[in-house]
Design a protein around this nucleic acid. Sequence first.
DNA 1: AGTTGTGAAGCCATTCACAGCG
DNA 2: CGCTGTGAATGGCTTCACAACT
Lengths: 213, 213
Amino acid sequence: MKRIADSTVRRLSMYLRYLEDLDTQGQQTASSDELAHLCGTTPAQVRKDLSFFGSFGKRGLGYPVHELTAHLREILGLEREWKVVIVGAGKIGAALANYRGFRQRGFKIVGVYDNDPTKIGKPWGEAIVHDMADLARDIQREEAPIAVLAIPSDDAQDVVDRLVAAGIRAILNFAPAQITVPPHVSLKSVNMAMELEGLSFALTNSLASQGAA
Amino acid sequence: MKRIADSTVRRLSMYLRYLEDLDTQGQQTASSDELAHLCGTTPAQVRKDLSFFGSFGKRGLGYPVHELTAHLREILGLEREWKVVIVGAGKIGAALANYRGFRQRGFKIVGVYDNDPTKIGKPWGEAIVHDMADLARDIQREEAPIAVLAIPSDDAQDVVDRLVAAGIRAILNFAPAQITVPPHVSLKSVNMAMELEGLSFALTNSLASQGAA
DNA sequence: AGTTGTGAAGCCATTCACAGCG
DNA sequence: CGCTGTGAATGGCTTCACAACT
């Protein structure tokens, strides 16, 4: 398959979100124009994005909402359940563990890990905080392919290396550090300080740059 | 000034982060090559990014660490203090309020707001949760230009409209919804579900796409 | 010799425009 | 007639390559 741009995948994710709404409301079809308005993009962009994966629409009519929803779930790999471990039982980890959107989309949190002795063994939401020393063993036993990293920057690369050695396949990193992984591991980083600094830059330079969702 | 790409601003932010480290360690100069390796980019990219704002380096030597750090802070608008209000006293709001990186870079949280009567008036970290009804008044009185939005999607556009009416100038949105603002307001959205879905896509299609930090 | 600064080239995502089809 | 699907054109970010400078 042709290489798909990251920006395209993010838009697919958004199309799915709004198609699910439309589906719930019982709407049968949606045009690229309607989807574009909902998602803040252009009709041509919607059609191009979808065309990478097939011809889902009917000319003169638009896209069948329910059907396209299923296609997008399949394209994004959301038909299955993904097991996720959260590393770092701090505030960010807690926010993520409670985040409705995760479970809704088939991401199941199978464990929470920390290396702080005062936290290990304590209840944490519906789970119990495990010792980070057991992380590698558990990833292998549970076959959890995804880790969410919510720990201080200093430890980040260290923990990543251990995750990789344990066979992790994807990492969502919230530590504000540049981390590296071997080519077979997928990595996405979210850096909140960086986002705020982007706003600071825009304000300072009197720009009103609207970032993508 | 020439229009600066969003990706460039994010890299500047990263350069600053690592330059501060080098400065603390007492390193005098850094080449574009060294910075590139630290930040996961290329030397040409580093030089091009910096060249938009001036000629900070010395040929044959590299960039003066301490001086460049100051330049970047100024470029990003981080020499001043930014007042920030947090809207939504849930887990995500709590994580953000506690986030060290914010205060470190000059972002001062001046208020936390919610519309849940069981939360209003209760202590929350070092602050007290205010009634969202007072938000507009306080934004004007405090002259807080930035709002962090950590509320459910359904209410997001409503609250945004009220923030805009109250004179907010920038919004960092964590609600997984497409929101719109007038052109004079800057908006950045962080959507964690979307990021995880990007990993799901990469895993499903056996790609190992490393996203930028 | 080493490294910056930068025009030019290359590449990739977005937009355009229209043929194709319902 | 309306809307999709798509090759072509556009625009913009990144990379290249080298002159300029220390």
